[in-house]
Design a protein around this nucleic acid. Structure first.
Length: 646
RNA sequence: GCUGUUGUAGCUCAGGGGUAGAGCACUUCCUUGGUAAGGAAGAGGUCGAGGGUUCAAUUCCCUUCAACAGCUCCA
């Protein structure tokens, strides 16, 4: 038997006897790697560690630190769950059970059997017992006929439906213990490494995501190789609950919802408004520096405007319905997008190639009829404000403009403490071109330009098909917050379609009419969503320049209220925001209340301070900065009080 | 939009066929207190909305609205 040339991730090539397994390779590298190995990537495909490699291959061994390793681990955990469930509920029918971002789920049909927290615990217990048995996951190739026979006999209609859609010859079963499942794999070698198990929740989910189908029970769970990691994860979940922007938004009096106003329509309270307006000021200033011109457009527009833009055709049916005027049969739509309005601004006069690029920026509030079940705090609402702008430029300027926008977006992220971000190039779905408008050539060009611009700035990008807007491809920015959760924020889009639909033109150096290109962009995305993410990122402890209340002045007793008031007045003159807590309470109480409200600075004044004309500065969290003159306080933190700048 | 759960004071929640309770917040009084809750008294609710069953409904039933979780969707 000949040898296989195995290329390792570092580029080195090792020879192994043909038929070597991933485990064998891992062992040859190190004992430690063998212990931690979970799956292996073979020529770009993820395999089981004990599957034989018969040809030359480039491989990478995955451990818990790799997505490929985690997915195999959780996928195997889903099978372990199924095995435990079947042991306790014979006859249960299984849907699908994939690994997900955090753990796994399995869709099951338990008939009318009630299934709640107690049942989850029971299954969890059985899973732990079964994991200890350390059964191997055994892969077998089966023919379609065999597969159908097996599940017909077992009586599992969902699996039969799945097999029906599969190609004969590419069907595999996996078995561990007494449990056999239709599965493509890959799996970890044995159940043993699954040491820490938590079944998290039960929810309804339609078979194959179609509401016409039967609703199955979807059981979510997560597993880890170590108990400690599970505990950390559960702690993180608790922490996420504490940081939930809906909870903090209420506690910190930032925003509210009212049934009377209508669902998904946020009311910004005074403190939330300060926060929001600070963000706006920050962005306005950055945009002026970047050459944008602010514009303002109305909240409604003639239906015809959106027919022209294509939005009506695409989203009209599912939107807020047109507003009809009493007299004439005019129809208006609540503005769902700012771009058509900006196109009309562009058209107010003839444009020369020398005028371009023109950049119109607007904090434009738009209204979209989101499905009721989709509404979620500030992250998904029906009326929201985009930090929108449209750049009209010549085709030869697209890339350079795109790069400038990337710089702006990254500046925003940096200023707000989002250090971890990735960018997604959202492309069109090549299988379903009818979803999009415009011809292939322009799409290809736009997709290329986005990728080039991203590369130029050294952005780490992932391309995802089918995520484009209907008029053009996008570069979407995802940030990771302090708890490691990913959020989609800013977006930049190249658009060749709207200029065509609105017949936008400019006169070129050749004295001929040309069509400009539009770039849509919103670094925050929407202020609502951005504020939500920011709240959860910093747990309500906003950077000083954003804090709705930057200080509180806490007199030790009412004897010092006058002095305290002077302190407040002086700071307000320096545009520093804060309030006087002159309640008839002890200072300990006032400190506690300011701490709970997450006020960054507590300025304590008593006899000593009043005498010396000083303040005692306590930072949120308890740090004592000692006593100082007011002017020293202001100059010490003046940088933090003001807007970050480019 | 679909399925499930929930809806009681400003907030967090208890209760239950005979029209309601706690803690915090609020108001007043006492207290003038030096770095995370000083004390006392008081006020506050069509028990989400509409309908039904009943002598009697906040409680049981139906409808509806909203929130929450999940599914589908997202210019």
């Amino acid at each position: 038997m000949s040898n296989s040339k195995i290329t390792l991730p570092d580029g080195s090539v090792k020879e192994f006897p043909a038929g070597v397994t991933g485990m064998g390779i891992a062992k040859s590298i190190s004992e430690g790697l063998m212990r931690n190995a979970l799956s292996i990537e073979v020529n770009g495909e993820i395999w089981d560690l004990n599957r034989s490699i018969t040809a030359d291959a480039a491989i990478k061994i995955f451990t818990w630190n790799d997505k490929g390793g985690k997915y195999a681990f959780w996928h195997s955990s889903a099978h372990l769950f199924a095995e435990a469930l079947e042991a306790l509920y014979p006859g249960v029918k299984f849907g699908i059970g994939p690994p997900i971002e955090n753990g796994f789920y399995y869709d099951v049909d338990l008939g009318d059997t009630p299934f709640g927290d107690e049942e989850l615990l029971a299954v969890e217990k059985r899973m732990i017992e079964l994991a200890k048995v350390n059964n191997a996951f055994v892969r077998t190739d089966v023919s379609k006929k065999e597969a159908l026979e097996y599940f017909t006999k077992k009586g599992d209609p969902y699996k039969l439906e799945l097999i029906d859609g599969l190609q004969d010859g590419s069907i595999t079963f996996y078995q561990q213990g007494n449990f056999v499942d239709l599965c493509r794999g890959p799996h970890i070698p044995t159940t043993g490494p699954i040491k820490a198990i938590k079944l998290l929740s039960v929810a309804g989910a339609y078979w194959r995501g179609d509401e016409k189908n039967k609703m199955l029970k979807r059981i979510y769970g997560i597993t880890f190789p170590k108990q400690k990691e599970l505990e950390e994860y559960l702690f993180m979940l608790e922490e996420a609950k504490k940081r939930d922007h809906r909870k903090l938004g209420k506690e910190l009096e930032l925003f509210a919802f009212s049934e009377k106003v209508g669902m998904g329509l946020p009311l910004w309270l005074p403190k939330g408004t300060v926060l929001r307006e600070r963000l706006e000021q920050f962005m306005r200033r950055a945009q002026v520096k970047a050459g944008y011109d602010p514009v303002v457009t109305p909240h409604i527009g003639s239906k015809q405007l959106y027919v022209t833009s294509g939005h009506y055709e695409k989203y009209g049916k599912d939107s807020f319905q047109p507003i009809h005027t009493p007299d004439e049969s005019e129809e208006f739509l609540l503005k769902p997008m700012n771009c058509p309005h900006h196109c009309e601004i562009y058209k107010t006069k003839p444009r020369s190639y020398k005028d371009l690029p023109i950049r119109y920026a607007e904090f434009g509030t738009v209204y979209r009829y989101e499905q009721s079940g989709e509404l979620h705090g500030l992250t998904r609402v029906r009326g929201f404000t985009q930090d929108d702008a449209h750049i009209f430029c010549r085709p030869d300027q697209v890339k350079q403009e795109f790069v400038k926008v990337i710089d702006l977006v990254l500046f925003v992220f940096k200023s707000l403490g989002f250090e971890n971000y990735t960018a997604q190039v959202s492309l069109r779905d090549p299988e379903n071109k009818a979803k999009y408008i415009g011809d292939d050539e322009l799409w290809d060009k736009a997709e290329r330009e986005i990728q080039e611009a991203a590369d130029e700035r050294g952005l780490k990008t992932v391309a995802v098909k089918g995520e484009a807007a209907f008029y053009g491809p996008k570069l979407d920015f995802m940030v990771k917050d302090a708890l490691g959760r990913s959020w989609q924020l800013g977006t930049i889009q190249v658009d060749y379609q709207l200029p065509q639909r609105f017949e936008l033109e400019y006169v070129g150096a050749d004295n001929q009419k040309h069509r400009p290109v539009m770039i849509h962009r919103a670094p925050f995305g929407s202020l609502e969503r951005f504020v939500a993410v920011l709240i959860e990122h910093c747990a309500g402890n906003f950077p000083l320049w954003l804090a709705p209340e930057q200080f509180s002045v806490l007199p030790i007793s009412e004897k010092f209220n006058d002095y305290a008031q002077k302190v407040v007045d002086t700071l307000k003159e320096s545009d520093i925001r804060g309030f006087l807590d002159d309640r008839d309470e002890k200072v300990g109480r006032k400190i506690r209340d300011s701490e709970v409200k997450k006020v960054p600075f507590m300025l304590i004044v008593g006899e000593k301070e009043a005498m010396e004309g000083k303040i005692s500065v306590r930072r949120h969290g308890g740090e004592d900065k000692g006593s100082m003159f007011l002017t020293d306080f202001v100059s010490a933190f003046s940088k933090e009080f003001g807007l970050p700048s480019l």
